[in-house]
């Protein structure tokens, strides 16, 4: 890869390594502590619900303390949503205001137009008058739609 693409290949390898390490390394280092807690919970579950099964399930290993580099100590407050110390009331999924939808639609249409204008601007000289007329036609067509939305009072926030 180095021979063909040069430095970019090296940077790509570094980027992938960085991403993987950031995601996987803390998780894998936390596995001893996590697994100890999960095993303990499982043992407790078996002992309370199905006591006769404890004979068949072997005692699960407890990882020694020096392997538990990354701590894992869950508690009910830690697992709940943060709201500056208060308890949350109700759901977080609320209904959005429908007026945002109009703005999103108009943005999509005009954004597509912008995507066409950029290459025209780059090749401005080569496209000459013909290109200019063409882009004017495109802008005009999309402007009709925008004018319609404007006159329909869609852009006002009542």
């Amino acid at each position: 890869m180095l021979a063909e693409y040069g430095d970019i290949g090296l940077l790509l390898a570094l980027a992938i390594f960085f991403a993987v390490t950031t995601l996987l390394l803390p998780f894998s280092l936390s596995l001893p502590a996590r697994l100890t807690i999960y095993f303990r919970r499982f043992q407790h579950y078996l002992e309370t619900r199905y006591p006769f099964m404890t004979k068949f399930v072997p005692p699960l290993p407890k990882f020694p303390r020096f392997m538990q580099v990354v701590p894992y100590k869950p508690n009910p407050a830690k697992n709940s949503t943060f709201e500056c110390g208060m308890e949350t009331i109700g759901q977080a999924w609320v209904r959005f205001n429908f007026r945002y939808y109009f703005y999103a639609l108009i943005f999509i249409a005009l954004d597509v137009m912008v995507v066409f204008i950029y290459p025209w601007a780059v090749g401005l000289k080569g496209l000459g008058l013909f290109g200019f007329i063409g882009i004017l036609v495109l802008i005009f067509v999309l402007f009709i739609g925008y004018l319609y939305a404007w006159r329909k009072k869609v852009l006002e926030w009542k």
Partner: peptide, 9 residues
Amino acid sequence: RIYDQMAEP
């Protein structure tokens, strides 16, 4: 509650 929600250590 904020203290409880802090991550160990």
